[in-house]
Design a protein around this nucleic acid. Structure first.
Length: 161
DNA sequence: GCCAACGTTGGC
DNA sequence: GCCAACGTTGGC
């Protein structure tokens, strides 16, 4: 079966780590670590090198999609789970059987225009987009091809509608 | 800062 | 296995 690129969305609070921070990092790369939710972790583990993801700014004014990133390293044991000095330290996780995973990402493209939540809500193609559902809190989400293209079209548009 | 929604924990 | 309490998320 041919490998097929999948699409994702990753949430980050820009005051902690913004798309611009990733863009400014060496080789525009960074680990994506610290995920401590099983469903989100399972999505991380399903990612393949070459998959693309939107970089979403949560807890921002306005919350928005700021850019596109690529998965450059598939899931590996998240080192922060074993670091007692780290906020995300998990004393129950055993090195022989790590509970949590990280991937590495690389910034690919800043969107010409950030796409705000309000705009996302206005797009008919995104009616069932998980991010827009009530109470959605997952920090890692799958994105369908139709949704991906609709959002890209909004983000690449140069002129206000 | 508020608060609704959600995931996790732990007593039973 | 149930479920109340708690901590966290995240839009506003």
């Amino acid at each position: 079966m041919a490998a097929r690129r999948q699409y994702w969305l990753l949430k980050s609070e820009p005051t902690v780590f913004a798309f611009a921070d990733l863009w400014a990092a060496p080789r525009r790369e960074s680990p994506w670590d610290g995920v401590r939710n099983y469903q989100a972790r399972n999505f991380l583990r399903a990612m393949r090198v070459g998959d693309l993801a939107f970089f979403y700014h949560s807890n921002a004014a306005p919350a928005c999609i700021a850019g596109v990133v690529e998965i450059v390293r598939e899931a590996y044991a998240d080192p922060t789970q074993f670091d007692p000095g780290h906020d995300q330290f998990d004393p129950r996780s055993k090195p022989a059987e790590p509970s949590w995973s990280a991937v590495d990402i690389r910034a690919v493209e800043p969107l010409t225009r950030s796409v705000s939540l309000e705009e996302l809500r206005g797009a008919p193609e995104l009616a069932s987009f998980p991010l827009l559902q009530r109470g959605s809190r997952l920090s890692v989400l799958p994105v369908r091809g139709t949704e991906w293209r609709a959002i890209l079209a909004l983000g690449r548009r140069k002129v206000e509608p």
